[in-house]
Design a protein around this nucleic acid. Sequence first.
DNA 1: AAGAGATTCAACCGCCGTACC
DNA 2: AGGTACGGCGGTTGAATCTCT
Length: 287
Amino acid sequence: MSEKWEMKRDEMGHRCCGKHKVKRGLWSPEEDAKLLRYITTHGHPSWRLQRCGKSCRLRWINYLRPDLKRGSFTAEEEQTIIDVHRILGNKWAQIAKHLPGRTDNEVKNFWNSCIKKKLLSQGLDPSTHNLMPSHKRSASSSSNTTPKPSKTKSIMTNPTFDQSTTTFSITNVNPYTSNKPNKVKSPDQTTIPSQTVIPIDHTMSSLLNDENMIPNWSNVDGMAPIHEEAPMFSSEKAVMGVEDDDLNMDILFNTPSSSTFDPDFGSMFSSAMSMDFNPMDDLGWTF
DNA sequence: AAGAGATTCAACCGCCGTACC
DNA sequence: AGGTACGGCGGTTGAATCTCT
């Protein structure tokens, strides 16, 4: 980083939110609820708690989006990650597009914490997927790097939507005392998630019919009028042109039908790997 | 039981590309 | 054309938690 940049940063604070006094660090359930409510109502974040737009976006994409799958990665997902990574390298966002409900951050973390070590233990170079020279293999295999199964991930479950009470339950929303998932030990010591139940308006579905569940992020950083304390009611929805007929919770909370995920992606790549070709050309991917 | 070390993963950092003025 | 703001992405950090001794 340049000295000039360091000076500029010191002068302005965080680059993306230097103009505003922004809160940083862990998100509280209250902040999550406010963000959700604001997005639900307005379709974009405006943050009274002085969170920068970038932080709001990240929180939404990585944690609050209702289409997130959560839970442990399956063997199929793991294989898909390995196969796509072999082609694309550390293109986490592109890899994540082949795993519905998974975020790039999640994929990246899973790679770094589990897959990478697994490949190393098998004597494979994680960056090239090729067999490593024997001296490196012995070094890595002797270090007992076999990954342990994730314990915390397995407790996460899909968000659920109770249409009767119009509440959106985000399982595993973390308490602000921790950046870890809420984890509560049951009497038998199995880890169970706690929940933050956030009231949510049906308007969300109209906001999220985009295949990636990404709301409009314009007008961030708290520059818009602040309305987060005002839940939207039916009459207001009507003003916005949002009718109950627009609501389709199947679309909202199930795997996006528009996903380009190919369930047989792994096997396709496994066989394709032995060929010398430009996979991007031959497969005609649309990233 | 307690301390040390390892692991996990949410959040932040830094940079780049693009849109807009 | 140049400046600014923002979205997006990969890399990194660090606190919470787990496992081992």
